[in-house]
C-alpha cells in the first residue's frame, strides 16, 4: 500500500510525459531520454565531466565550511567584533552569488581555482552568518557552568561552542549546499571546456535535445543525492538536538 502511494503519482506523471512527448520537438519521450542518459553518462564523460564537477563542488563546499565556521566562531564570541562586522557581512550575503562569477574570472582566470573560488565565495556567507548567530545564542548558564567546571580551550570549543551552535551551523550548511550546486553549474556554463554545466549547455547549442534532458535529469539526481546525504549527516550530528525534543526550525 505504501509503495503504491509513493509510486502512484510519479508513474502517472511519466505516463503523461509519454503521452504528450510526441507533440513537441523539445520534449522527447522518456525512453529516448533514458537511452540518452545511459549512453551519455555511463561513458568516459562520467570521469571527464561529472566527477571533476562534483569534486570541485565538494572542495569549495568543504573550504567554505571550514572558513565559515572558523571565522563565525571567532566573530560570534566577540561582541564588539560582531557589532563591527555584521553590516559588512550582511552586505556580502545580500550579493547574489552568481554575479561574482564574472569578477572572479577576472581575478583567477577560468580554470579549476576560479570555479572552486566561486563556490567558496558563494557558500561561505550563509555558513558564516549562521555560525555567528548560533554562537551568539549560546546558553549563558551553560557557558558559566563550563567555566566553573574548568572546561577550557579545545574541549570547551568542541563540547560547548561548536556543539551548542551546531543546529544553526547545519542550517547554514544546508543553505550553502544548494547555493554550491547552483555555482558549480554556472561557473562551468560561463567559460569552460568540461564539466556538467558546460556539457549540458553544449548539448543545448547542438540541439541534442534528449541528451540535454538527460543532463537536466542527472543534475536533478545529483541534487537529490546530495540532499539525502546531507539529511543523513544532519540527523547524525544533531541527534542530541532532536532527542532533546527541540523542534526543527
Amino acid at each position: 500500500m505504501r509503495v503504491v502511494r509513493l509510486l502512484a503519482l510519479p508513474v502517472l506523471l511519466v505516463l503523461a510525459w509519454w503521452a504528450v512527448s510526441g507533440s513537441s520537438f523539445y520534449l522527447p519521450s522518456p525512453d529516448r531520454v533514458g537511452r540518452a542518459f545511459a549512453e551519455t553518462w555511463f561513458s568516459e564523460r562520467l570521469v571527464l565531466d561529472v566527477l571533476p564537477s562534483v569534486g570541485r563542488l565538494l572542495a569549495g563546499y568543504v573550504l567554505a565550511g571550514l572558513l565559515g565556521v572558523g571565522l563565525g566562531v571567532l566573530i560570534g564570541l566577540s561582541r564588539r567584533l560582531r557589532a563591527t562586522l555584521e553590516p559588512v557581512l550582511e552586505f556580502f550575503r545580500a550579493i547574489p552569488p552568481p554575479v561574482l562569477v564574472p569578477l572572479i574570472m577576472l581575478l583567477a582566470g577560468i580554470d579549476t581555482p576560479m570555479k572552486v573560488l566561486v563556490i567558496v565565495s558563494g557558500c561561505v556567507w550563509p555558513i558564516l552568518l549562521n555560525t555567528v548567530e548560533g554562537v551568539r545564542a549560546l546558553d549563558e548558564v551553560l557557558s558559566d557552568t563550563c567555566r566553573m567546571y574548568g572546561v577550557r580551550g579545545a574541549s570547551r570549543m568542541r563540547r560547548f561552542v561548536l556543539r551548542g551552535a551546531s543546529p544553526q551551523i547545519m542550517a547554514g550548511l544546508r543553505q550553502a549546499l544548494s547555493i554550491g550546486i547552483i555555482l558549480m553549474v554556472i561557473s562551468e556554463m560561463f567559460a569552460s571546456s568540461s564539466g556538467l554545466g558546460f556539457t549540458i549547455v553544449l548539448f543545448q547549442r547542438q540541439f541534442q535535445i534528449a541528451e540535454m534532458w538527460s543532463g537536466i535529469l542527472l543534475l536533478g539526481l545529483l541534487g537529490l543525492a546530495l540532499s539525502v546525504l546531507f539529511r543523513g549527516v544532519e540527523r547524525r550530528v544533531l541527534s542530541w538536538y532532536y532527542g532533546s525534543g527541540a523542534e526543527r526550525a
Partner: peptide
C-alpha cells in the same frame, strides 16, 4: 524528488 533539482539545471531548456 523535484524540490532538490537545482533550478539552474533548467537554463538550457529556458534558453531553447
Amino acid at each position: 524528488f523535484l524540490r532538490p533539482i537545482p533550478s539552474v539545471a533548467l537554463v538550457p531548456l529556458a534558453t531553447l
